[in-house]
Design a protein around this nucleic acid. Structure first.
Lengths: 145, 145
DNA sequence: TTTGAAACATAGCCTTGGCTATGTGGCATG
DNA sequence: CATGCCACATAGCCAAGGCTATGTTTCAAA
């Protein structure tokens, strides 16, 4: 009664969604990073992935396995890691979303370094609809751009 | 140039912080929920906690154990769960932050239901500085309030 | 061509946060 | 006052995402 049981979206639903988002967050980050490494140095080595993510090398290896299992990346032993088309699309989408979130936070008065820090966590929970709102806010706020 | 590698705050640092935030996120949610249940029904039973969080009952029990271990809650077997002063303070802080985030999202054009959904994940990654910016934005945007 | 260091893989362990199945305590009701 | 049901606890399992320690490849340099 107190929880408006007739509501289509329950408290529990929201938590379930947040849990879901969190479970794909790391995959998104790894995919984006691999894309960045390819752009910056022409290839993505496990050692570089580990260094950039701030994790031990076996942790990066395990993450790559998960990416492969999800169809986002490919790799052969002792060679670099490559994104599949799906993985590349994901990386691009994540990168764009990240930039939008950071720009948006800065636009509403968050210091750049703080925006960069917070965006890393926030971005994974920003739905398409919210992202659109951010985009609209940005284009409305910078007509002289 | 896209990732400003010369920055004192590295890519890895940001991920570490996001990981940190995620590890306390659930504790925050459980604490807030227990506070809500006390406010709504005078007590917080494990069964209600589980139902609201959308998890099985043993999962809620385990979460309560963690809360107790962290000094946020107390409980005796087969009795309700109670927040400590620290837990209450945390719950209040989380609740206020949640409301601010939702209000802010709505203020920038996100539909209410979507704001509610996204806030559940976003709020845990909003730093004090970013929260202040949201507050400032809200008071600036509603001078007639 | 050998070899040694760096890069990578693998094994095995931990914690967290889910789950199901099953044991136990508390309390209302017959 | 007995007993059955519901609430809760406990045991044991799983996957994810960390870690260290230790094999295995690769490659460049001697």
């Amino acid at each position: 009664m107190s929880t408006t049981p007739s509501s289509p979206v329950t408290h529990a639903d929201r938590f379930a969604r947040a849990r879901e988002a969190q479970s794909v967050a790391l995959l998104e980050d790894y995919a984006e990073l691999i894309g960045d490494l390819h752009a910056e140095m022409g290839e993505a080595r496990v050692a570089d992935i580990a260094a950039r993510m701030g994790v031990a090398q076996p942790t990066a290896t395990k993450a790559v396995s998960r990416l492969k299992r999800e169809g986002l990346a490919t790799s052969r032993p002792y060679r670099g890691v490559f994104l599949t088309d799906t993985g590349t699309a994901l990386a691009d989408r994540v990168r764009r979303r990240h930039r939008t979130v950071v720009s948006f936070l800065v636009a509403v008065g968050v210091p750049e370094d703080v925006a960069e820090l917070d965006a890393e966590g926030i971005e994974h929970h920003v739905s398409d609809q919210t992202l659109s709102a951010f985009d609209r806010f940005l284009s409305a706020g910078t007509p002289e751009d």
